[in-house]
Computed example of a mutant assay.
Amino acid sequence: MKKLFFLFAFLGAMFFTNAIQAQSYNSAIGLRLGYPVSVTYKKFLTESNALELFAGYRGNTFYNWFSVGAAYQIHKPINGVENLQWYFGGGATALFYSYDDGFDFGDSGSVGIGIFGNLGLDYKFPDTPINLSADWMPTFFVGSGYLTGFGGGYGALSVRYTLN
């Protein structure tokens, strides 16, 4: 019985090691330096499919904005450059915001939903646990107040620490 257990443990370890080597990293955590600045966690579900989760905050004197979201991404290698991939996908975000115009009228707070596309580049440095990505996220907002309609200027540079 012990021999059978060790055989399955060895085969499982070999399978797990090969699965990690097929992808330059398995998961990573870091910052999305965009609009808004966010904490990001990216996890590969398969060799080419990843899920990215993010939560961010942006604010100034007149408004505060907190968002959470998720993106499903499909990664494709770029031939000729090791560890560089391009990706596409989409996702959704929930936005919680408040607006204060400095007077006693016109103030509002609300919740909005954003549905977005995702297009970007992803690079894992070969000898360090650092991953960089840059993306564009055209977003269609459904909500009240000023967060309604199409926004084509969203995207970010992400810097992450890889966890595998």
Rank of each mutant, 00 (worst) to 15 (best):
M1W: 00
K3F: 15
L4V: 04
F5D: 13
F10S: 12
G12D: 09
F15E: 14
T17E: 07
N18L: 10
I20D: 11
I20H: 14
Q21S: 14
A22T: 05
Q23H: 06
Y25R: 04
A28Y: 05
A28T: 08
A28K: 09
I29Y: 07
L33V: 05
G34I: 08
Y35M: 10
V39M: 10
V39Y: 12
K42G: 07
L45E: 06
T46E: 04
N49C: 07
E52Q: 13
L53R: 07
F54H: 06
F54V: 04
G56I: 00
Y57Q: 05
R58N: 12
G59N: 00
N60L: 03
Y63P: 03
N64W: 01
F66D: 13
Y72S: 12
Q73V: 00
Q73P: 09
I74C: 14
G80M: 04
V81T: 15
V81Y: 14
Q85T: 11
G90E: 02
G90F: 01
A92P: 00
T93C: 03
L95W: 13
L95M: 12
Y97Q: 04
Y97F: 07
S98P: 03
Y99F: 06
Y99Q: 06
G106K: 06
D107R: 13
S108M: 01
S110V: 00
S110D: 04
V111Q: 11
G114L: 03
G117R: 05
L119V: 12
D122Q: 10
D122W: 01
Y123R: 10
Y123F: 10
P126Y: 01
T128L: 09
P129H: 04
P129G: 04
N131V: 10
A134T: 08
W136M: 00
W136S: 06
P138S: 08
T139D: 02
G145H: 03
F150M: 02
R160P: 13
L163N: 02
N164D: 15
